[in-house]
Simulated assay, not measured.
Amino acid sequence: MILLNKFEQFHAEVRNNKWLGYFTIFLRIALAYAFLMAGFTKVDGERFTSLSNNHPMGHYLEVLFHTGFYYTFIGIAQMLAGLLLLIPRTSLLGALLYFPIILNICILSYAVRFDGSLLTSPLMVLANLYLICWDYHRIKFILPFKRSGFKELIPEATRSRSRFPFKFFLSVFLTLIIAVGLIFTMNQKAVMPRNHISDCNSHCPDSSNPEACASFCDCIHNNGNSLDDCLNKYGSKFSR
């Protein structure tokens, strides 16, 4: 209970800082823009990327494209989440709708090792979580916690504190650096299909087993085998 009270006090302080208010507006606009563009592509009936169907993500998106109205439904859900984020009164609802969609995209990107959203999707998940926490005072009453004694109203129209939150933005900057570093390390150590066979092959000379790497690229982009099959073949060649 003490920990919850401290969190609520911290949350009130954050809500009272005008710079964090501006940051919140920026995140809402950025996330909304991403989903409005992606959703409109689906509603308009266009393919989302130009990836080859042999690519794991390209194969998934091609199948998704041929699901008919389900493909359109995903686009509508994305656009709805984006629009709700842009309206102050419905921003929390937009953030809650946004979260399962972007989390699914993030997990999918890592599952198929898709370069295009390996970095952006986890950062969008973090930004989405921030927006949900920003409106904690609006959702805390449905959480299975015992009610605290913290009853102060959180001002919506004006924010009294104008001190620039250097520590917060430093932590955001460090989070970006760590995320970029982790993704870069993963790309260097893990075998990746990349977006095109030329990109895939370009990393083979620097790999510990260029022959196995080239065989993996051929397995994905030319033969169109599954990622698991190609990884298994890569592992068998690598162990020789």
Rank of each mutant, 00 (worst) to 15 (best):
P144F: 00
P144M: 07
P144E: 11
F145K: 10
F145N: 14
F145D: 14
K146V: 13
K146C: 02
K146A: 06
R147F: 00
G149F: 03
G149K: 05
G149N: 09
F150T: 08
F150M: 11
F150Q: 12
K151Y: 05
K151F: 03
K151G: 11
L153M: 08
I154M: 13
P155H: 05
E156W: 06
E156Q: 05
E156G: 06
E156F: 03
A157D: 15
A157G: 05
R159E: 13
R159A: 14
R159Y: 05
R159Q: 10
S160R: 04
R161M: 14
S162T: 10
S162H: 09
S162F: 07
S162E: 13
S162I: 11
R163V: 08
R163T: 14
F164T: 08
F164Q: 15
P165E: 06
P165D: 13
F166M: 14
F166V: 06
K167S: 13
K167I: 10
K167L: 15
K167Y: 07
F168R: 01
F168Q: 01
F169W: 13
L170M: 10
L170G: 09
S171A: 14
S171K: 02
V172Q: 14
V172E: 07
F173S: 07
F173E: 03
T175K: 03
T175I: 07
L176P: 00
L176F: 13
I177E: 15
I177H: 13
I177V: 15
I178W: 11
I178V: 15
A179W: 01
V180I: 12
G181D: 08
G181M: 09
G181C: 08
G181R: 15
L182S: 14
L182F: 04
L182M: 13
L182H: 13
L182T: 14
I183M: 10
I183V: 15
F184P: 03
T185G: 03
T185K: 10
T185L: 04
M186P: 00
N187T: 11
N187G: 15
N187M: 07
Q188T: 12
K189A: 04
K189S: 15
K189Y: 11
K189E: 04
K189R: 06
A190F: 12
V191K: 02
V191F: 00
V191Y: 01
P193R: 10
P193H: 15
R194P: 00
H196A: 07
H196P: 03
I197C: 02
I197H: 03
I197A: 02
I197Q: 08
I197L: 15
I197Y: 02
S198F: 02
S198G: 11
D199V: 06
D199H: 09
D199G: 07
D199Q: 08
C200Q: 03
C200W: 01
H203I: 10
H203C: 08
C204K: 07
D206G: 04
D206P: 00
D206E: 11
S207V: 12
S207L: 06
S207P: 12
N209E: 06
N209I: 03
N209G: 04
N209W: 04
P210T: 13
P210M: 02
A212Q: 01
A212N: 01
A212G: 01
A212T: 01
C213W: 00
C213A: 08
C213L: 00
A214G: 09
A214K: 11
A214S: 15
F216M: 09
F216C: 02
F216H: 06
C217T: 14
C217Q: 06
